[in-house]
Simulated assay, not measured.
Amino acid sequence: MRVTADVKQETRRRIIESARKLFADKGFEQTTTRDIVADAGIAAGTLYNYFPTKESLAMTLIIEALDGAAEDFASTRRCDESLEESLFAHVNAGLWRLAPHRRYLAEVLETALSPFAERSPGGEAERLRLGHLETVGQLIAGRAPPGAPAHSALTMHLYWTLYLGVLAFWANDPSPNQEDTRVVLDQSMRLFAAWLTNGGMRTEERCDVPDSC
């Protein structure tokens, strides 16, 4: 029997919703693929036709949240923001969207996003990283001196390390509404912007052309 595109889409949706619920209720490590299969009401082998690993399923949920955060950031961004203010707003938008996944985010960081993970990042994790860094590169490019490269591998590596540190801190932050994380985020982005300034970047410049900011 031929499986239609609509059936495939519905099956994928059920898998994602089951994983979303189980990860939130039981945690990432405690949730098994059998749990997801049972909750979604599908055959055991069907899950792997859509998601090869549990990590790839978790990354799909996180990417979905961060895609929404990117839209939030784009719709609220101001042209008079400094680089550190834009970076803060960009990351903070992601934290708000990631809130439903906070309980298991630290585990996903260790298994999929960390440069020290035992397994190589999957395609989903790499797409997340590249997409996030593309936006950061665009923010930096608007403040680079004429003729200078927008960013370097070292710049992006430093930023990504700071970003993962903020996420890890936030995932375990016991302060009300994770207020301490916002302090860490603010200090981290100020540090990053200052590092760029010392490297010749003019972070004090402002964007005054709406289409270019």
Score class of each variant (00 low, 15 high):
76 T>A: 13
158 L>G: 04
110 E>N: 06
52 P>F: 05
62 I>P: 06
89 A>C: 10
13 R>E: 15
148 A>C: 07
108 V>R: 00
50 Y>F: 15
183 V>W: 09
86 S>D: 04
14 R>C: 04
65 A>I: 05
96 W>H: 15
202 R>W: 00
78 R>W: 02
35 D>E: 08
128 L>R: 12
75 S>T: 13
204 E>A: 12
109 L>S: 01
15 I>R: 06
104 Y>P: 07
114 S>M: 07
140 I>Y: 00
97 R>I: 02
130 L>W: 10
145 P>A: 06
186 D>F: 09
65 A>V: 06
7 V>E: 12
92 N>I: 00
209 V>D: 14
2 R>E: 06
121 P>F: 05
105 L>N: 02
49 N>W: 07
95 L>Q: 02
201 M>W: 12
152 S>M: 03
27 G>Y: 09
22 L>F: 02
143 R>K: 13
189 M>H: 03
116 F>L: 15
177 N>R: 14
177 N>P: 00
138 Q>C: 09
208 D>E: 13
169 F>K: 06
30 Q>D: 15
174 P>M: 07
102 R>Q: 15
28 F>E: 02
121 P>V: 03
149 P>N: 06
101 H>F: 11
72 D>T: 11
47 L>Q: 01
22 L>K: 08
182 R>V: 05
198 N>E: 14
186 D>M: 11
167 L>K: 03
129 R>I: 06
122 G>D: 09
90 H>L: 15
200 G>R: 07
199 G>T: 04
179 E>W: 03
197 T>L: 03
163 Y>W: 13
35 D>H: 10
53 T>A: 05
20 R>D: 14
49 N>G: 15
114 S>R: 01
61 L>I: 07
87 L>C: 09
201 M>I: 14
102 R>A: 12
202 R>M: 05
88 F>T: 07
87 L>Y: 03
130 L>S: 14
120 S>F: 11
107 E>W: 02
212 S>H: 11
18 S>E: 08
169 F>H: 13
166 V>H: 05
133 L>I: 11
207 C>S: 09
199 G>E: 07
97 R>N: 08
142 G>Y: 01
197 T>N: 15
118 E>K: 13
192 F>E: 03
145 P>R: 05
173 D>Y: 00
44 A>P: 11
115 P>G: 05
36 I>Y: 00
98 L>F: 08
193 A>I: 09
83 L>F: 03
164 L>Q: 04
206 R>D: 03
55 E>A: 12
83 L>N: 05
114 S>A: 13
97 R>S: 14
4 T>L: 11
149 P>Y: 05
107 E>M: 02
73 F>D: 06
84 E>D: 15
172 N>S: 11
187 Q>W: 10
15 I>M: 11
159 Y>I: 06
93 A>L: 08
84 E>A: 10
149 P>R: 03
159 Y>T: 04
60 T>R: 12
179 E>Y: 00
168 A>H: 00
129 R>F: 05
71 E>V: 15
49 N>A: 14
